[in-house]
């Protein structure tokens, strides 16, 4: 029996747990800061993009997940580095960004007479607003087409009422890529994880569900009675 207990303690120590409760928060923080500090030794070397392309990705990251009163931006959370790292490992992904960034600049020149990074914030967000609106329209159109393709009208090749695909298609596709990777980078970073107040990923000796949380939800639910 003693042998079992001793081994348990060793295993717990190996995991960074203490026998009395959760992993020491300061110790955890220390580990994270150390990693961060280590990483920030020297500037990040861009591998997959031209300087202008990378600046555009940085600016997009700042706009897609901006800093607010709660936390920093996706730029602070390392989204451009994340995109660059993966693109450097995957020509298909790099291609999506090279092409998409060039499309964005061409569209910006046409609409506002300057590339994306050269425009003011108002025009930059105006462009993204146009893409989001087009994305929603396009998504509705695709659903309509799906329904149509399953219908008898389609089989008889008659009564085609579905709209044409959006001319902004390449922009919609690219924006979805840059947005999803920026959002992923932000919410998987220490900044983003803190932003949404994730409390887990740690060991503890006893699992407790706090009463204040139970009371909060129950009092706002159709069940006003006490907890289980």
């Amino acid at each position: 029996m003693f042998e079992i207990e001793r081994r348990e303690v060793i295993r717990a120590l190996a995991l960074g747990l203490t026998t009395i409760g959760t992993m020491d928060a300061d110790a955890a923080q220390h580990v994270h800061t150390a990693t961060g500090a280590e990483k920030s030794k020297g500037p990040y070397r861009v591998k997959a993009f031209q300087p202008h392309e990378y600046k555009t990705i940085q600016r997009l990251a700042e706009i897609i997940v901006p800093a607010d009163e709660v936390s920093g931006s996706a730029l602070d959370a390392g989204a451009p580095e994340f995109i660059d790292t993966l693109a450097a490992e995957n020509p298909q992904l790099a291609g999506i960004f090279h092409g998409g960034l060039a499309w964005l600049d061409a569209e910006m020149r046409q609409r506002y007479g300057t590339v994306f990074t050269g425009a003011d914030t108002k025009n930059q967000t105006a462009m993204l607003d146009i893409l989001v609106a087009a994305e929603r329209e396009e998504s509705a159109r695709r659903n309509e087409e799906l329904v149509y393709r399953r219908s008898n009208d389609y089989r008889q090749f008659s009564n085609y009422t579905v709209k044409r695909p959006s001319p902004l298609g390449p922009g919609i596709t690219f924006f979805d890529w840059v947005r999803k990777m920026t959002v992923d980078a932000f919410y998987t970073s220490p900044i983003g994880i803190k932003d949404i107040d994730f409390r887990g990923n740690k060991g503890m000796a006893r699992y407790v569900v706090p009463k204040e949380s139970i009371d909060w939800a129950l009092s706002r639910s159709p069940f006003k009675s006490a907890a289980l």
Binding site: E81, F82, T85, L86, A87, E89, N90, Q92, L93, K180, M181, D184, A185, T188, S189
Partner: peptide, 13 residues
């Protein structure tokens, strides 16, 4: 570095 998206962002594909 890939945050769980796997090298080259495999999970996206």
């Amino acid at each position: 570095d890939h945050r769980g998206a796997e090298p080259g962002g495999k999970s996206y594909f």
